[in-house]
Structure formats: C-alpha cells, structure tokens
Write a protein that binds this DNA or RNA. Sequence first.
DNA 1: GTGCCCCTTAGAGTGCACTCGAAGTCAAGG
DNA 2: CCTTGACTTCGAGTGCACTCTAAGGGGCAC
Lengths: 145, 145
Amino acid sequence: MINEPPDVATCRVDELTPDVDEPLTVGQVAALTGLSTHTLRWYERVGLLEGVARDGSGHRRYTEVDLRRLVLLMRLRATGMPVSEMLRYAELLRADTPTELQRMQLLEAHRDRVLNHIADLHRDLDVINSKITGYRRALSPAVPA
Amino acid sequence: MINEPPDVATCRVDELTPDVDEPLTVGQVAALTGLSTHTLRWYERVGLLEGVARDGSGHRRYTEVDLRRLVLLMRLRATGMPVSEMLRYAELLRADTPTELQRMQLLEAHRDRVLNHIADLHRDLDVINSKITGYRRALSPAVPA
DNA sequence: GTGCCCCTTAGAGTGCACTCGAAGTCAAGG
DNA sequence: CCTTGACTTCGAGTGCACTCTAAGGGGCAC
C-alpha cells in the first residue's frame, strides 16, 4: 500500500445522514463530512461522485443518495483504497448492465486486503512494542510505571 | 494520517538478521529488506540512517547494528509514521545527551496512534461489510455461497 | 447600489516519499 | 586493455491526492 487515507477529523455524517431531507450545499456537506469543499468538487470532477444536481443558480445540491455514496467512498479511502480503484467502483455503479457481482467482488477483495494490512500492522507493532519494552527496562529505575 | 507506508513485498530481514556477520553492501541490504538501493541511499541522505561505514572504495558497508536500526525504521514507516517524525527519532538517537525517555515516549505515542487507526479501520470495515452483505442478499438467487 | 458571502469553473500548485538519471569510480573477468 | 556491473554523488523527476487560485455569478442586508 503506497497511500494512506486522509485523517478526517470530524465526520458527523454517520449520525446525521438519516435525518437529512433537504438537499445540501457543498459547504454543508463539507461541514458534515469533514472533507473540504475543494475535495468534494474534485471528487465530482474526476468521476468519483457523478450526478450531483444543481439548483437554479448552478450550485450543487447533494441529496441523501449522494451522501450515502459519498460515505462509502470515504470509508474506502479511509481504508487505503486508491482513487483509481474507487473510480472503477464508480464506473460499475453507473454502468447500464448489472454489475452487482463485480462490485461485491471489488469490495470483498478490498476488505481482504485491509484485513491483511491490519495483521501486518499488528506484527509491526510487536516490533515497536518490544523496542518500547527495552527502553522501559533500561529506564526502570527512573520510570517505575 | 495522510500517508500510507510502502508495500514491501519481500522482507527476509527478520529471519536473516541474526546470522549476518560480515557487513553488507547496499545491494545486499536491498535484497534483504525489499527496499530499493535508491531508498537506502535516500534514507541516509535525509538523515534517517546515519553513520553507515564505507569500505576502501567508498562503498557502503551495512553492519548488523545498521540493519537493526533499519528494521525499526521500516516498521515505523509501515505503520504510517511520516518520515519527518522518523527523523526526530533518528535525531534523538544521535543526541549526545540521554534521550531514552523521549524515544520511548515517541514510540508509545506512535503505537497509540496506530491502535486508534486500527480501530478506525475496523469501523470502516463494518460499513464496507454491510455493503457487501447488501450485495450478497441482492444476488442471493445467483450467488448461493 | 454595494458590500459580503457562498457558490461556480478550470487550471495550476503543493507535499510527501520516493525514484530516476547523469556522470563518474572501482574491481574482477576475458 | 577493455568491458561489465555494482557502486558513488547529487540534482531532477514522478505519482498520488489533494489544495489553492483566478475570475466570475447570485442573492441578501444595509
């Protein structure tokens, strides 16, 4: 894995998604998700989140369906999926033939990669923890805790 | 977390480290660790792994001590520590005052961040898994597995 | 009407962590 | 002697995922 996902500080979308009735502006979605308005527009530009409606002034109006798609995209990014593969998923979503099977397989393959990655992290933590233990031992007179 | 660590395909260093007696060339270390020779030289250039000796021809000779430092650096990178923070650790290593406490605290803070990150990954996987389950349900006549 | 603020687009810029290239050195093999 | 291949340094280039800028529009408060 070459890229690491963004650290989205505040994401209230999980709690707030269900009660959103009116379509939201890009700024409201940004506040809700923790993504920047720049990133939201960029996601649309590159094809990750297509079909966001516009109001009479040409401003984006995000529907609940858009938000749901966005939340999944954020979870995929947060688990390290590269944008190029998220794009493949997005393309499957807007295909005119049924693609549920491919989409499921894409998500399953990703889930398995993430699980392997977590296992790797635990192994790496073992090394780091043993180093910490060594320091604690060396400092034991000074640091009894 | 903004960056994700490299996917080091083959790292035999864990098994082979103990039996290395002779200092190794950069190419041998690259083969052993899975890092590229470019990356190994770059780590030294930026100050991550200082003090690698040279032979009569000016070629690097990595000792077992160098390898041990390198393995820890690789684990830190693999768990998402940015190079800038690895550099802080390296600077503590070559300080002329005792820095064991700071080093331990740095590693502990990192370990805690990684544990939080793993917890986040599990939560993200829950969302992805529920999406997978939805697909599986929708496909259940076609995909009995 | 005039700030003001949020919005629009498309293109350019940024930061990170490598990754590569050019030019040169050195030791061994044929 | 000449080639080959692994090594040296240092500066430049790459890919990813944003992030920012410039130039402009819409609508509301004062």
